[in-house]
Computed example of a mutant assay.
Amino acid sequence: MPLRVTFVAAARGAPLLAERFEDDRPLDQAGWDEVQRVAGDLLPLAAAELRYCSPTPRSRATGDALGYAPLVQLALRDCDMGRWRGLTLGEAMAREPEAVDSWLADPRATPHGGESLLAFISRVGGWLDTRPVDDAGRIVAVAEPSVIRAALVYALKAPPSSYWNIDVRPLSTTTVSGRSGRWNLRFDGIPAQRSRT
């Protein structure tokens, strides 16, 4: 039986335009409301043999609110953004426009002094490839959208630049199945009870 890993995107912690690099703010009220609206649809994932989450407050809170009691996985942390941590993309661009352009264009670039996009994708992919195939058939992992994007790029063996073309919505689910080095992708979508984007 192939391993199935379902990623659940953490609920919102801030409006989209206010999102910050390595944002460690807790869920905002809109995020809590969204979790309550979709909890019934996502609760069956709590039956997974293993339940994990990113170490961010909003990922942990989302997993707990959905009844998963997830185990924190450091490998599922957001990309280390070095001195840009806590800034919005617009703020980083205003301070260091050439450095941001370099970072967006080159997946190996680390102008912020943190982790490159390629290293981030490899770290998250390494976590995916080391899941215990023999011990569990189903895994659920609540993670930041950026982490899920990295996992999808890795699973599809897509070029790192495709990371920028993947949109992961809060509380959407995406499943990869297979085993190390051979993953298939299934878009599960956003639970039907959600009425707004």
Rank of each mutant, 00 (worst) to 15 (best):
P26Y: 09
V168Y: 00
G113S: 03
P159C: 04
G31F: 12
N165G: 00
V147A: 12
I121Q: 02
A94M: 10
R58V: 00
M1I: 02
L152V: 09
G13A: 11
A18D: 14
L171V: 05
A109D: 12
A155D: 01
M93P: 00
D80V: 00
N165H: 14
E91Q: 15
E34S: 12
G40D: 10
T110E: 10
Y52R: 10
S122V: 07
L27N: 11
L76S: 08
F7P: 07
L104D: 04
S162T: 15
S162A: 05
P145F: 10
G90F: 03
V124H: 03
G67S: 05
P44I: 14
T110D: 05
A99E: 06
D167W: 04
P15D: 09
I121M: 01
Q36K: 13
F120E: 11
S146N: 06
E49A: 15
L42P: 06
E19D: 15
S180Q: 14
A155S: 06
A75S: 10
N184H: 13
A99H: 06
S122I: 00
T88D: 04
N184W: 09
W103T: 06
Q193A: 15
R179M: 11
L128C: 03
L3V: 15
D101W: 11
G67V: 05
S122T: 15
L128V: 06
A10R: 13
R196P: 01
V147T: 14
L185C: 00
P26R: 08
G137K: 04
L128M: 14
H112A: 06
E96L: 01
G126Y: 02
P170V: 11
P97M: 06
W183P: 02
T6Y: 09
A119Y: 02
P159W: 10
W127V: 02
Q29L: 09
A61E: 15
I139D: 02
V72N: 02
S180V: 10
A136R: 09
V176L: 02
A158G: 01
G181E: 11
I148C: 01
F7W: 04
F187S: 13
V140S: 06
R196D: 12
R179G: 14
R77T: 01
D135Y: 05
P70N: 09
M1V: 07
S161T: 14
Q193K: 12
A11L: 05
R182V: 03
A109H: 00
R51N: 03
D23E: 14
A14C: 10
G31A: 08
T175H: 03
P97K: 03
D135A: 15
E22T: 09
G82I: 03
Q29G: 08
A192M: 07
N184L: 11
A155Q: 08
T56G: 03
A155Y: 05
D64L: 11
E91W: 02
D28A: 05
V176P: 06
S162I: 13
V133Q: 10
R51K: 10
Q29W: 05
G125Y: 13
V38A: 10
A39F: 00
L87R: 15
